[in-house]
Structure formats: C-alpha cells, structure tokens
C-alpha cells in the first residue's frame, strides 16, 4: 500500500530518524537514502524512507497544472 503523505525528518541518528506526520512522531529507517537531513520531507513505506520529496519539482508540477488548465484547446 502506497502512502502519499510526506513525513518531515525532525532528528536522525545513524540509519534511523524520527519523522513527524501531522504531529504524529514515528521512527523510520533511512538507510536507502544517500543524503537526508533534518527538515527534509520524505516518502515512507513499511517503516523505510524511500525517497526525499523535491520541493522545487512539486512547484513545477503545480505550475504545469496551471499552464495546462489555462491553455486553450
């Protein structure tokens, strides 16, 4: 089951980190992310952070939404 909700890293120690999702704190494993830092948003699957969320790309996608929705067909 894929979970779209992003978790925010609030502290990390070795391959483990504490992440916050809407005020809920969870310990997650960060061993498969090469470079993850406090305040990064990550996607979590089965207790593992599987990818960092790229804020710039998120903005680009929303820009794309705006562009397409305003295009004239």
């Amino acid at each position: 089951m894929c979970l779209a909700v992003p978790y925010k890293i609030i502290s990390k120690k070795g391959i483990k980190a504490i992440a916050d999702v809407f005020g809920i704190k969870k310990e997650i494993d960060i061993r498969i992310l090469d470079d993850v830092n406090v305040n990064d948003y990550v996607l979590v699957h089965a207790g593992f952070a599987i990818q960092k969320l790229d804020q710039e790309e998120a903005k680009t996608t929303l820009d794309l939404l705006r562009e397409i929705s305003e295009e004239s067909v």
């Binding site: 089951m1 979970l3 779209a4 909700v5 999702v21 809407f22 005020g23 809920i24």
Partner: peptide
C-alpha cells in the same frame, strides 16, 4: 482536521 486526514491515510 489535517491531522485526522493524515492518520486516516496512514491507517487506510
């Protein structure tokens, strides 16, 4: 609340 939506997403 966002937090309620959040926990619901997590727990399905």
């Amino acid at each position: 609340k966002d937090a309620v939506n959040g926990i619901c997403d997590i727990l399905g």
